[in-house]
Design a protein around this nucleic acid. Structure first.
Lengths: 334, 334
DNA sequence: CTGAAAGCGCTTACAG
DNA sequence: CTGAAAGCGCTTACAG
């Protein structure tokens, strides 16, 4: 059964294709009532539905945007995607989801493919390593917005957490509760992934603000798999470590595993605050004090910005960084 | 800057569009070396990249599939999507993600839109309430596969967990550890969502197998928000409830919250097994015994089946249900 | 070995 | 108020 086209409808309704097209696009300013009726009926009778690919080719708009996340398995990405989808849905946009896995080559491939597919714009968690490509997009006036991270010297509007504040909030809370020897645990810092850099900056600033000095041995970084070993070192040593700030949920997991395996009590043996409000925070024992990111608001904002850019392509592409406020959720781990 | 087209390349290379097209599609059986070189250079010089929308229109294939999940915020959906994306990526397919929220109207809208967009096929977590539409798809020989749930009397290939077995595994484990008064907690059962029905069936069978009788008061269902109240009732009453099977992760959360709020000990006050291997299961206190679903394998299988159908559209569309094995992960909550 | 022509299914000035 | 025609950017027989 071959699909029915606008030509079939036209023939059935005994009008021209143009007229059917007018009808489809609700331009019935001057359309005769009878004509309208006939077309309506023909469409129903034949079960016609327009081929959007053909329309896209002509109109140069696919009503689709690409979303390139680092990894959809991260809860934050998932929430961002959901928010984007909800927002786009209202404007009849669809989203193509891609996982770049923090791999610049994969990211490049996806961006190229998405453009070839003529998506109207892209929202990306940039790897940061395709500067040339990013600049090309800007030069082409291609609608794009970054989320979670930005890239230095690449003026693309970005939606980000106020990462420094996230760390500061945690430090303030630790200090308020009487902890002084505060460590920060983080994944590797090789590539300059912006949020990590900023969170560490916030950590240092937070210490300073309270007249606590920064000790590099308290900034513990390593692959997720190495973190348990590193905990061993620092906790066994003669450090009077009494509090830990976890850079993100994955790091938090490792700390929690370690505590359980070694029967350490939280917050008695060490207090703990994690950035990212994990799903089980409220009913863990102890309930976990966390710094929550407004993921949905951030996703929504990114979608708003992108659709805005798509609609006003001509407008001067004003570059802005939109910062969102982290929120301290006080529970019992600190 | 207007995009460069195949015509521009042709002019620049001084050949015809046909020849450029041949080149793009790697049909250089009889192409002269010099021609090839010239085209290659022209493409590079002009920064040409083919417009896939135009190609799609002609070839009637968009290299894109739609994935309609109930809700991307569920971890299971997320894992399934990731697996699908990875698999599709290898064949250069892209995926459009939609959240139907278990709303049949939304599902219908998405299916219609995806077809209008000419996606080559769809993978869906069906709501089950659009039987007419599903049958239409079958009649049109439209490539589609279901995942997680199937729909009675709708012969569309489906990838599912062996849900009955999931419950049976749990019951076996409870009994093995000496528990006899086993309750099952579940979200509402109004619509016949297949996995729920099957898990309850498995629960009953499991009891029977061990000569335990089924008491309807032990099958506790309600909206997520009501579950805590229901727990109160059943635990306060004079029931010697000593074990609970949680239908899914969301139900498990409520039980865990309740236990914490009321300082109940697991497994001393009641043993607990949850279907879905939640992220924190291994480091919760107690570590949670769970029934894990092979989400990635299931997503991959669904993608395989769909791409298979897309490639052999003519082949008789053999309808099969593919069952996947749940796995008991023994930890300390039972 | 390469090109002219038709066509995919729409939309959009432009006539009348 | 409606239709003929051109065109969006490709691909694909078919000639030569």
């Amino acid at each position: 059964m071959k699909p029915v086209t606008i030509a079939d409808v036209a023939k059935y309704a005994e009008v021209s294709k143009s007229t059917v097209s007018q009808y489809l696009n609700q331009r019935y300013d001057y359309m005769g009532e009878k004509t309208k009726k006939r077309i309506e009926e023909a469409i129903k009778e034949l079960g016609y539905s327009p081929n959007i690919v053909a329309r896209s080719l002509k109109q140069k708009s696919t009503m689709t945007i690409g979303v390139i996340v680092a990894n959809i398995l991260h809860v934050f990405s998932t929430q961002v995607i959901r928010a984007i989808e909800d927002y786009c849905n209202k404007s009849d946009f669809h989203i193509i989801v891609c996982n770049a896995d923090d791999d610049p080559a994969k990211e490049k491939r996806y961006i190229d493919m998405l453009r070839a597919k003529q998506v109207d714009g892209i929202i990306a968690f940039p790897t940061g390593d395709n500067v040339e490509l990013y600049n090309r997009l800007i030069k082409d006036d291609y609608p794009i917005v970054f989320i979670d991270r930005n890239v230095s010297d690449v003026p693309i509007s970005t939606v980000m957490l106020d990462n420094e504040k996230a760390s500061r909030l945690a430090i303030d809370e630790f200090v308020k509760k009487g902890y002084r020897n505060i460590a920060m645990f983080t994944p590797p810092l090789k590539r300059d992934i912006n949020p990590r850099v900023e969170r560490i900056k916030g950590y240092k600033e937070g210490l300073k603000k309270h007249n606590l000095s920064f000790h590099s041995k308290y900034l513990v970084s390593g692959e997720i798999s190495e973190l348990q070993g590193k905990m061993d070192e620092i906790l066994q040593g003669s450090n009077h470590l009494d509090a830990i700030l976890a850079m993100n949920d994955r790091v938090l997991f490792e700390i929690l595993k370690y505590a359980k395996a070694n029967q350490l009590r939280i917050p008695e043996d060490f207090a703990l605050i994690g950035i990212d409000d994990v799903s089980f925070a409220s009913f863990y024992s102890p309930a976990l004090t966390t710094i929550a990111q407004p993921a949905f608001e951030m996703g929504k904002k990114a979608a708003e910005l992108l659709l805005e850019k798509i609609k006003n392509k001509d407008m001067t592409c004003n570059y802005e960084i939109h910062r969102f406020e982290p929120e301290l959720v006080v529970r019992s781990s600190c």
